[in-house]
Design a protein around this nucleic acid. Structure first.
Length: 574
RNA sequence: CGGGGCGUAGCGCAGCCUGGUAGCGCACCACACUGGGGGUGUGGUGGUCGCAGGUUCAAAUCCUGCCGUCCCGACCA
């Protein structure tokens, strides 16, 4: 590609709105432009990278035996009512009406549509297992789009759905997808980890997420330092401490604590550590009748509530949210910072580590007072004990091997064993070899194609710009002539090399604008992140050389002209 | 959803407090010089100052409402 016939739209300064490095660099390099919150256009340069990811995904999916198809973005409400997700999915589902006032949504995912196809077209176990995929635009009306294309409302996803006669077959395909995903992210040149995950709103039993490790990641993932155990913190189990009894301690007493509302302040007042007090969190969830119901959750002062675990412990389908100060005041006539479990008339779930405390401090459900020497058995005997906290670094690994460490990750892929969640309710059945009708088992498998692009940049950049992994680069080689307009020799050589490289199959960006200055061309090529660059100037040509430099290198290499192609072959395939 | 910030040329910003000719840097166009790491000079192009209403002789500036956008929070208990 000749730069003179392309759009290189680089900027020196990042737009003020860009927070994370990948967002800044994508804007500065001229890969994307924002249309509105969470909606981005891909400029030609960005689209080249996007297509590279897409190509790798498609090749690996095809190689796995999956079949590509394409389903509509706009989906009728009836299908979602049938799966009961029209009500469940919440505000992320963008609902629209057509001219006949019929309701539709923009598809955030396609379980309903694929299940509808399969239940009509697949009747026999002989047609199973089968795995369909598409690479397509999704829409989720995120409450807070951010970080450029990392979390947008409209985004591109590869979604796949497999169908099986039984669980064993599902397990086999699930494992194949696990390997396929590993191949895809390896080919993309990413440092990633597969971790055990929660199934969230998609549902199902077993699930793994694929995370690209990066400081800016929105997820916390935990690893054992002695085994393969890795999980999303949402899912990582905090083991219950060894059974501890609650020997009677000195009598509980109420202590005046004017103005004390935070754990920090409680600790100073009583001269104790945060692990010796508890915090009482009030959450609200919508019950079956659509009413908001309050629940009390207790974790140790130094621990954090895990909302996903709490939701499971409360056996709720809908998401929980923290109660507002106002709700709390109405229910308990005190501020949130003065809450405690003693005497609370509502369902109470206590985390294992909080339940093993004895003689602890907590709020008195009365402003400006706290309770000390509280004993569970004696003072507050009725509660459910469960794991509802986030693990912390140093906790024992749930598999019994080693201790946990915590890192940040960007979720780029997610695979689920759905089981019969959708096929059951939508009556997707086949006849088995005995002529008996069986509900199909399903798996589903997603990759955030646009997010992979951003994640790759988060992991590969320096102060000059992007450093593309070989397989994702918009161009493999940048060809930079020095003083193109002045030197006939430079011009002829550059044209010759450009023709040679192009016919050898390389993607070359030829900086052929005659009066462009060397410095700005180098800066652009580095910002854009092209892995290999060639500089052709009189200086080198006088000795029969041109200069090669890898984007990660700090020195040029002089390459004799007649060895150029061979040299590049070694470098590009390295 | 709650709180806060911002909205002036493609990008980054100043001007607003104290109303009176709309500015700066980058980018862009022309010419000249320069020519191996974003060069210099001269001259230019480009803005209904987010939108609507109000106050005023006069509004980017003051007032009201709306919209957009970004950040923070929603784990403080």
């Amino acid at each position: 590609m000749r730069a003179s016939q392309y759009l290189i739209s680089t900027q020196k300064e990042p737009p003020a709105e860009a927070e994370v490095i990948s967002h800044q660099l994508m804007l500065r390099a001229g890969m994307i432009r924002k249309l509105a919150s969470g909606l981005y256009s891909w400029l030609p340069l960005g689209l080249r990278v996007f297509r590279n990811v897409e190509r790798i995904v498609r090749e690996e999916m095809d190689a796995s035996g999956a079949l590509e198809l394409s389903m509509p973005v706009v989906q009728p409400a009836e299908l979602w009512e049938e799966s009961q997700r029209w009500g469940q999915f919440g505000q992320e589902l963008l609902r629209i009406r057509d001219r006949h006032e019929r309701e539709f949504c923009l598809g955030p995912t396609h379980e309903e549509v694929i299940t509808d196809i399969v239940r009509n077209d697949i009747r026999s176990y002989r047609q199973l297992p089968i795995n369909f995929y598409q690479i397509q635009t999704k829409f989720r009306d995120e409450r807070r789009p951010r970080f450029g294309v990392m979390r947008t409302r409209e985004f591109c996803m590869k979604d796949a759905y497999s169908f099986h006669l039984d669980e064993t077959s599902l397990q086999t395909t699930y494992e194949r997808m696990y390997r396929t995903y590993s191949n895809i992210f390896t080919r993309c040149g990413l440092d990633y980890r597969a971790v055990i995950a929660d199934t969230g709103s998609i549902g199902g039993s077993h699930s793994h997420e694929f995370h690209v490790l990066a400081e800016s990641g929105e997820d916390a993932i935990v690893f054992s330092d002695q085994s393969d155990y890795a999980a999303n913190i949402e899912k990582a189990e905090a083991l219950a401490p060894e059974k501890s009894s609650h020997p009677d301690c000195e009598a509980m007493s109420e202590v005046p604590t004017p103005g004390v509302k935070t754990i920090d302040h409680v600790c100073k007042t009583f001269d104790i550590g945060p692990e010796q007090c508890i915090k009482t969190l009030i959450v609200s969830a919508t019950n079956g009748n659509g009413d908001a119901q309050l629940y009390a959750l207790i974790v140790r002062g130094d621990h954090q509530l895990n909302e996903v675990k709490a939701q499971h412990a409360l056996q709720l389908d809908s998401e929980i949210s923290m109660a507002s100060e106002e709700q709390i005041h109405r229910a308990f006539n005190c501020t949130p910072g003065s809450l405690g479990p003693v005497g609370l008339a509502m369902p109470l779930v206590v985390d294992h580590s909080a339940a093993s405390l004895n003689a602890f401090v907590c709020g008195a459900n009365r402003d400006d007072y706290h309770l000390r020497s509280v004993n569970w058995q004696r003072d507050c005997p009725t509660y459910i004990q469960a794991d509802i906290r986030n693990v912390v670094a140093g906790d024992p690994s749930p598999d019994g091997c080693g201790q946990l460490t915590i890192k940040r990750g960007i979720e780029v892929g997610h695979i689920f064993q759905l089981g019969t969640k959708y096929s059951e309710i939508m009556k997707a059945r086949v006849l088995d070899e005995n002529g008996v009708e069986q509900v199909m088992h399903m798996g589903c498998y997603g990759i955030g194609v646009s997010r992979v692009v951003a994640a790759a940049i988060e992991q590969n950049n320096d102060d000059k710009g992007i450093i593309w992994p070989e397989a994702l680069a918009p161009f493999q080689i940048a060809l930079i002539p020095v003083n193109l307009h002045k030197s006939v020799n430079v011009k002829q050589t550059a044209e010759t090399i450009y023709a040679q490289l192009t016919s050898a199959g390389y993607d070359v960006l030829f900086m052929d604008e005659s009066k462009a200055r060397l410095g700005s061309m180098l800066a652009d090529v580095e910002l854009i992140g092209i892995p290999h660059r060639l500089v052709i100037g009189e200086r080198g040509l006088n000795d029969g050389n041109i200069e090669y430099r890898h984007r990660r290198a700090s020195e040029n290499q002089s390459i004799p002209l007649d060895q150029l192609i061979a040299h590049l072959q070694r470098q590009v395939n390295a």
